[in-house]
Amino acid sequence: MTVDKGNKLARVVHDSSSGRKLATDPKLDSSSQKRIGDQLRAMYDELMQQPVPDRFKELLDQLEKKNGGKGAAQ
């Protein structure tokens, strides 16, 4: 009986110190991993820099007006 594939405990162990690849959990080499990470963050940064649509500011302004002076609404 082989338990290699289904051994979830092996996956939980964070293999950061050793550069060895576990047969059960093949890891990307660090440069590929870095490239994926860089692209992801670059894409995300662009999204983060989009201006906040007015609808959200208006929504939160309404909240402020509704609760203005009295804090017992919720």
Partner: peptide
């Protein structure tokens, strides 16, 4: 909440 919006949107 407003400060959280860009992250939530992304």
């Amino acid at each position: 909440l407003l400060a959280a919006v860009p992250g939530l949107r992304a």
